[in-house]
Structure formats: C-alpha cells, structure tokens
Design a protein around this nucleic acid. Structure first.
Length: 583
DNA sequence: GCCGTTTTCGGCCCGACTGTTTTCAGTCG
C-alpha cells in the first residue's frame, strides 16, 4: 500500500466515526494523521520493513502507528471492516447534502432507516423527515434542494477559473463607496490548484450596501444566508460565494482567519492561547484572569496579527500546517519564487505539430512577454494525432530556427523536442538525433494503463538517457479528469537526482504536474524544477503564473526553479548529478 | 486519538447563521 492508500483508509475511518458521533477530537486525529501521511517523504512500507519508529511522525501516536503497520503487512484494517459492518458506507453521501452533518444524518439513518440519497428524497417528498425531532418543514425543503447538489458532486474548479470569477466579483463590488478595502481570501488566496468556493472580505461600515450589491451580481442564483456580518450566495454555476463585512480595525484579523487554512488557524490560535491571547476574526485579544476576552492588541492588518503572536506573516500559499511554523521558528521561512523571477519557457508547440501558432509567432509572443530564452518542443512521431515529427521533419524545423536566429538578437531560441517514451520503453527518436538537440523533454503519452513496474522502467530509461534533459508532466494526471498513471514518484525523484535531470512543473491549469507536495519532495532531494507553459498557442504562454502558484505552495525559492537562471547557467545543470552541484 | 519547558490527564480554535427551540443544537468555515 502506498502512503496515499493508507491515508485514504484513515479518512474513511474518520468519516464513519464522525457519522457515529464519535469524539470529534478522535475524528480529527484520524484526519490529521491522514494529512500528514500524504505529505510524508518516505514510503511507509519501507519504514515498517525497517522497523522505524512511526510515532516520530507528527500526528502519529502509538495507536495509529500500529494501524499503519497492520495495513502495510496485511493490506486491510480490522477496525475499518468492523465500522463498515456497523454503518453502511452508502450513508456517507448524505453528509454531502448542505445542512446535513453527522448528527442529522445519523438521525435519518437510525430513525427512518435511510441509507441512500434516493431514499432520502422519497422520505422528504412523503413528508416523513419533518416529523423527526430537531427537523421541521424548512429543514426538509433544504434537504430536498440539497440532494441535487450532493448528487451532482460538483467538482472543485481550477484556480484559473476561480480567478476569472473573483476578478468579476471584485470589479462588481468595488464601485460601492462604503468599501475601504476588498480582498478575496480562502483557498483562492492560498493558490490551491482547485477552489471549492469563493471567500470575499470587505472593510466597510455600511454592511447592507455591500450585501445588497453582492445580491445584484448577475450570476447569483440564490441567497443562502444573510446576517449582520456574513452573507452566502450560490451562483448559477453552483459555486458558493461567502462574503464577510468587517470594520477597519478587524480587517487584518478577518483576512487572516478567512484565508485559512483551517489547520493553519488551529495552530495559530493554539499558540495564541499559550501566550494568554485569543485570536478570532475580530482581532487578537488578551485573555483576562477569568478567561474572558480582554483588551485588543492587534487586528487592523495581517502583519499586526501575526506579529502580536511572535510570528512572521506567512505567504498565503504556505498556510497549510505543513511545517511552516517550524520553518518560522528556525528563521528559515523561504522567500518564495515569483513570476518575475522566470527568465525563460522551455516547453511549447507550434503548427509543425498540434500548436495553433507558427514558429515565428511563438517566438514573437515569447519575446513580447520578456522571455530571455525559449525551447521549441514539438511532439515526436508517435503522437500521430498531433502530426508528431520524425527525424527529417525535426531537423527541418531546426534548420528553420537557424534561419530565423539572425532576426532575434534579444531572445535565445533553443532547438528542442518533446520526445515520447514508447510503450516498449525506447525513445521515439534515434539517439543521434536527440544528441543534436539543445533541450530534450521526455514524456509519456501512451500506454498509461501499464503496471507500475513497466511505467517505472520507461521513466527510468528516459532519466538515464544521456540526451534527455527533463521529464515533462511526470505523473500524467489531469485534475478532475484523469488519475496519474501508476508510478513511484520517490523513485523517479531519486533517479533524477542521481543522473542530473530536471523535473517539470507543467503550468497548464488542468495539469499542474508535478503537484505541490511532489515538488516539495523534489526540492528536499535537490532536484531542480522547471516551470513550463506547454503552450499550444500564443495565449498559452500566459499560464506560467498558475505554475508559480503551485511552486510557491511547495515552498520553492527562485534557487529551486531552474528557469529562473539565464540559459548559460541552466545548461551546465544538465547531466550534472544534483549531489555534485555547488551549494 | 494525540500531546506535554505548566501537564501522562485533560485539554484539544472560535464565532456566525439558521431553524427549531422557548434558550440552544447543529452546521459551516
């Protein structure tokens, strides 16, 4: 079992325990444990085989350590089997209905024997739900409307799509004169690859003016809730937007609170408590001797709030309780990479294969964007649907690049190729051709269903190939659409380190591959990351900021990202094992 | 279930909003 498999078991246990109304802190322990395992660098299977002390892992105690060992050794967990006998897993979707938590879902299961969304709908339509204690007519209506939402299980949207909506919302709200400050918070601000809902925060005294204006946003389908400071609406697209309106003296505290993550805030507030302080969305307050909220010590800005707790202002991308507090204590909070640090783009296509712009158009567009260098990397012949290049056509394209070079003294155009790693494990072009290239991307488009052993054989062959520079979109996942192929990312990173190869962070918003936790592992191993656009038209060059967001979430600095270097300094990195790099 | 320069037991972040209650539980973030 992989670390993620084991984490999934713990998450399932947490879901079932929650349904059974178990101690919420016990539920949290399982969820927290699952989270920590997903970010763990070392495979648990190896740690167990080595008889390592698993309780050294933060969030893993004696009990979870034993369960991990059981899972590694037997592939199953008796406790989960037992829980599933007590509660059918089919009841869990009920908790996805907005307004239904563990208590109400359990009442529906225990009193009405409801075990599916279909049965729940029938019970609502027959008016049986309103008869239950704690339920009423209104609740029944809310559930009925919510079932459709739960069934649709609307995907979290790409960060890039959320950004479009956020910009529209901000533009819509800004004309309100009462608004002094306005920010989008939540997972959007943390730069998460997908966003589940949009959180907006306004500094204003005229609350009604702001809320009325949000209600007038054209895409609003429904107002879910509206109180003195908080309003929630649902858009036509099903996306929920939460608005919070606070006074200036609380804006920083509210922004900190509303940005999250939840786990980060739990840590922040726990630390505050130890210092005799209380943090809420209204500010940082001293706690009086009788435990009441006392004098306010901070709140207007985030800097002020964190400073009051003796903490630096964490970049939003790092606020995930994934080790940022330890880094801060050691004074090693990184200065994260920025879009402006990138000097070149090393993955793009042209009309020679499946791109929509010509060679010259791509070069012009890249130059307009200030790139110092680019690599032209069309597909190799195996990608027949894209009209992939054979050796002759590739050499013809390189001759074309040579012919164009005199026209461009301010941008370096590299002769590259995105060469497929064939199902057989061979490269799709002859070695002598690859040896002539400035930049060789290896990637895997076919045979993605092969077993792990075969996939790894292919990837490792490419990593060891003397002409290969980098592995592109190394896991092959497409967010919300396709799982990654079956690979061992740790092994790939180790091989890249050994052979001096780079790994791509593909900035396409549907890929973002490697993801943040994998990039963090690569950083720890000293393997440089290259953030690339994989552009198939000139506008496609503009996705780099999405990749940089993901890189920042991984804690990468400019030094960890190879294409922040001038080409002359990047080139020597190739085929230099990371262990031999300076620094 | 985890954790500990106050603790091996007793804590574990904190507040807004709704609906169903006649003072609060459940849900949500």
């Amino acid at each position: 079992m992989t670390n993620r498999d084991i984490a999934a078991v713990f998450d399932q246990v947490a879901d079932l325990l929650e349904f059974q109304n178990a101690n919420p802190f016990r539920v949290r322990a399982y969820r927290n444990g699952a989270r920590k395992l997903k970010d763990l660098a070392d495979p648990l299977s190896r740690l167990v085989a080595d008889d390592a002390d698993l309780t050294a892992i933060d969030g893993i105690g004696k009990d979870l350590a034993e369960k991990i060992a059981t899972l590694v050794q037997t592939g199953s967990l008796p406790m989960l089997t037992e829980l599933e006998q007590q509660v059918p897993a089919s009841v869990l979707p009920m908790m996805r209905v907005p307004g239904l938590g563990p208590k109400k879902a359990a009442a529906l299961y225990n009193d009405l024997k409801i075990t599916s969304l279909d049965m729940l709908r029938a019970a609502c339509e027959e008016g049986r739900v309103r008869e239950l204690k704690g339920f009423g007519k209104k609740t029944e209506e809310t559930i009925l409307a919510g079932i459709a939402l739960a069934e649709r299980a609307t995907d979290r949207i790409y960060w890039s799509a959320a950004d479009e909506i956020v910009q529209e919302l901000l533009a819509h709200l800004r004309p309100v004169k009462a608004i002094k400050q306005l920010e989008a918070a939540g997972s959007y601000r943390r730069g998460k690859e997908t966003v589940g809902d949009i959180d907006l925060l306004a500094d204003a005294t005229d609350v009604d003016a702001v809320m009325d204006r949000l209600g007038e946003f054209p895409a609003v389908a429904e107002v879910i809730a509206r109180g003195d400071t908080k309003m929630s609406v649902r858009l036509d697209s099903q996306l929920q937007v939460d608005l919070r309106v606070v006074p200036s003296e609380s804006f920083g505290a509210a922004l900190q609170y509303f940005t999250g993550s939840k786990e980060h805030n739990v840590e922040v507030r726990g630390r505050a408590k130890q210092q005799g302080l209380r943090v809420n969305e209204w500010g940082v307050f001293r706690t009086t001797d009788d435990g009441e909220q006392g004098e306010r010590v901070a709140g207007a800005t985030e800097d002020e709030v964190y400073a009051a707790l003796g903490l630096p202002t964490f970049p939003p991308e790092l606020r995930e309780a994934r080790g940022e507090f330890d880094l801060a204590e050691e004074g090693e909070l990184p200065r994260l990479v920025e879009v402006g640090d990138l000097r070149g783009d090393l993955h793009m296509h042209t009309t020679a294969t499946d791109g929509k712009a010509t060679l010259r158009e791509m070069i012009d567009a890249a130059r307009d964007r200030g790139h110092e260098y680019i690599a032209i990397t069309d597909h190799s012949k195996r990608v027949s649907m894209a009209g992939g290049l054979d050796a002759d056509r590739l050499r013809a394209q390189w001759a074309e690049i040579d012919a164009l070079r005199p026209d461009y003294d301010d941008i370096v155009v590299l002769k590259g190729i995105e060469c497929d790693i064939l199902e057989s494990g061979e490269m799709d072009l002859p070695d002598e051709v690859l040896a002539e290239a400035d930049w060789v991307i290896a990637s895997l488009h076919y045979g993605q269903k092969q077993p792990r052993e075969k996939i790894m054989q292919r990837l490792l062959f490419a990593v060891e190939h003397p002409s290969v520079s980098i592995i592109a979109h190394p896991t092959g996942r497409l967010i919300n659409r396709r799982e990654s192929y079956d690979l061992d990312v740790d092994q790939l990173i180790a091989a890249a380190r050994q052979h001096g190869k780079l790994l791509e962070l593909n900035a396409n918003p549907a890929r973002l591959d490697l993801d943040d936790s994998h990039c963090a592992l690569a950083k720890r191993a000293g393997v440089p990351i290259v953030v690339s656009s994989d552009a198939h038209h000139t506008g496609g060059l503009d996705v780099l900021p999405y990749g940089v967001k993901q890189a920042r979430r991984a804690g990468l600095t400019a030094a960890d990202v190879a294409n922040t270097l001038p080409w002359k300094q990047l080139k020597p990195l190739l085929a230099t094992p990371a262990s031999q790099l300076p620094g």
